[in-house]
Amino acid sequence: MRFIEILAASFSFFSRIPVPKILLPEREPPYPMMLAVSPLVGGILGAIWGGIGAILSLRFAALGAAWASALIYVLLGWGLHLDGLSDVADGWGSGESGATLKEVIKDCHCGPYGVVALVLTLGFWTSLLFALPTWRWITIGIMVGASGRWAMCCASCIGRYPWKSGMALPFVQDFSVKEILYALLCFAIFFLLGPWLWILSFFSTTFIGALVALWAQKRIGGVSGDVLGTIEVLAELCALAAIALFTL
């Protein structure tokens, strides 16, 4: 299968932007490779919300532009990962473990801990973006978006899928060293845009991806789709925090 077809399938799955059918593969795509090329998808989405936010900041207050960027990002497809974050937050807040914890996380309803997690995440995300120069938002968006997906790849390589079925099963179960090398290559493409930003993003998101994956292995027996979404969001926050801390 051609690389462009895999990238188009990944873009179609991880974003809400319509992809022309002519670019999509005719047969079922290799899901682990779709995840492996997702750093490219994240970089493109980051360029979009970063670029629009930077343009809006020319006319409106930077804080308002940062919130607008967050809204745009959610509409572009980030909402899928925020949903995973809210589910895992409810599971963590329940104080349960094992099978009961799995059921809480799999429950599609958003509880109080999930709501608090979403509010804090969006507030923290926009505050960090606001603290950074608006003229750098495009580059920062690319790095942050790509590194968040890189963290998901790290987690998929470390963990196994905890249930017999689920949306993320084909992505995680066969994710191997080959896919993580492809993912690293797709992420490394952005190195020249800002070596220092890339290094900060790489180490912070690799750490958070591995840490949450190990926690999930211990508490629910593996890395589910909700866990991947949580990792993506937390990794972006860590990348933004690292960039704000060491570049200002």
Results as ranks from 00 to 15, higher is better:
residue 3 F to A: 12
residue 3 F to H: 04
residue 4 I to W: 13
residue 4 I to T: 15
residue 6 I to H: 13
residue 7 L to F: 12
residue 12 S to H: 13
residue 20 P to Q: 06
residue 21 K to G: 09
residue 29 P to M: 03
residue 33 M to G: 02
residue 35 L to E: 04
residue 38 S to V: 08
residue 41 V to M: 06
residue 47 A to N: 05
residue 49 W to M: 02
residue 53 G to N: 00
residue 57 S to N: 00
residue 58 L to E: 12
residue 60 F to G: 01
residue 63 L to G: 03
residue 64 G to N: 11
residue 66 A to M: 04
residue 67 W to F: 15
residue 70 A to M: 10
residue 71 L to S: 10
residue 75 L to Q: 14
residue 76 L to N: 10
residue 87 D to H: 14
residue 88 V to D: 00
residue 89 A to W: 14
residue 92 W to T: 08
residue 93 G to I: 03
residue 97 S to C: 07
residue 101 L to Q: 10
residue 103 E to F: 10
residue 104 V to S: 06
residue 105 I to G: 05
residue 105 I to E: 03
residue 106 K to P: 11
residue 108 C to I: 14
residue 109 H to M: 13
residue 112 P to F: 12
residue 113 Y to W: 14
residue 113 Y to H: 13
residue 116 V to L: 13
residue 117 A to F: 15
residue 120 L to D: 13
residue 121 T to P: 08
residue 122 L to D: 03
residue 127 S to P: 12
residue 129 L to S: 00
residue 133 P to W: 00
residue 137 W to R: 00
residue 142 I to Y: 02
residue 145 G to R: 10
residue 147 S to G: 09
residue 147 S to P: 04
residue 149 R to K: 15
residue 151 A to D: 05
residue 152 M to A: 13
residue 155 A to Q: 08
residue 156 S to L: 03
residue 156 S to R: 03
residue 160 R to N: 11
residue 163 W to S: 07
residue 164 K to G: 13
residue 168 A to R: 12
residue 169 L to C: 12
residue 173 Q to V: 15
residue 174 D to V: 04
residue 175 F to C: 07
residue 180 I to R: 08
residue 182 Y to W: 15
residue 182 Y to K: 04
residue 183 A to V: 06
residue 185 L to M: 14
residue 185 L to N: 08
residue 185 L to I: 13
residue 192 L to F: 14
residue 193 L to W: 09
residue 194 G to L: 06
residue 200 L to Y: 05
residue 200 L to H: 05
residue 210 A to K: 10
residue 213 A to N: 06
residue 216 A to C: 01
residue 223 V to E: 09
residue 223 V to I: 12
residue 226 D to Q: 07
residue 227 V to I: 14
residue 228 L to T: 12
residue 229 G to T: 03
residue 234 L to V: 14
residue 235 A to T: 10
residue 237 L to Y: 02
residue 240 L to N: 04
residue 240 L to E: 01
residue 241 A to H: 07
residue 243 I to Q: 02
residue 247 T to Q: 01
